[in-house]
Amino acid sequence: MNELQFLTWVRGTGLNIAVGIFLLGVLWRLFEIYSLGRKQDLSAPRHASGASGFHTIFRRSLPPPGMLKRSPVSYIGGYVFHIGLAIVVFLFAPHILLIKNLTGLSWPALPSQFIDLMAVVTMAAMVVVLVDRINKPVKRFLSTFEDWFTWTVTFLPVLTGWMAVQHLLLPYTTMLALHILSVELLLVVLPFTKLFHVFTLFGSRWYNGKVNGHKGVPV
């Protein structure tokens, strides 16, 4: 298989398979999780819980009082890594072009130089959170193979994408193909690992916020 055939496979068959497994996995897991249902709460609410579920979805993105100080690396590293990733994924011109190609939706891109910087910053933040995971007793204690594995499959697309843009190590084509392949790997494993938190996070925060809203706990 030469480069063009490799690239053709990853952006054709490979992508189809990956997106297929991703969609299948996401729907399967969402059904599997949320169909378990829960009992209706019969206790009288302090006041109608209203939009507390939605509030928590947003508010939980901010550190509760005192926590930033207790675990600065988790928060700052986490912010930089998640925001950086979002910027790189959604505001890089070729990615927008891809989304436009698939969905017809498009929006303005950020300059490539800035994206390039963000990719480096994101990778740096990821390395920092990895080092933190290795160094901090609690994180190391909690870590399983899955934690190291998901870190790697998240890191690889950023690294290969950045290297492709920078023309490092391998010819652009090969790197681009590896980049797409690494994204496919990410798509395939996402529904079946802790990476699925990108979906369940909203459900979890909503449940938590709803319960708190019901009790009138200010969150």
Partner: peptide, 25 residues
């Protein structure tokens, strides 16, 4: 070259299959 060659041929099938698996579970 960076575009998907074959925009998500299996997407609909996969989504239906995923939903079916999910409902069965």
């Amino acid at each position: 070259l960076s575009m998907p060659a074959d925009p998500l041929k299996m997407a609909a099938t996969a989504a239906v299959a995923g939903a079916a698996v999910g409902v069965a579970i």
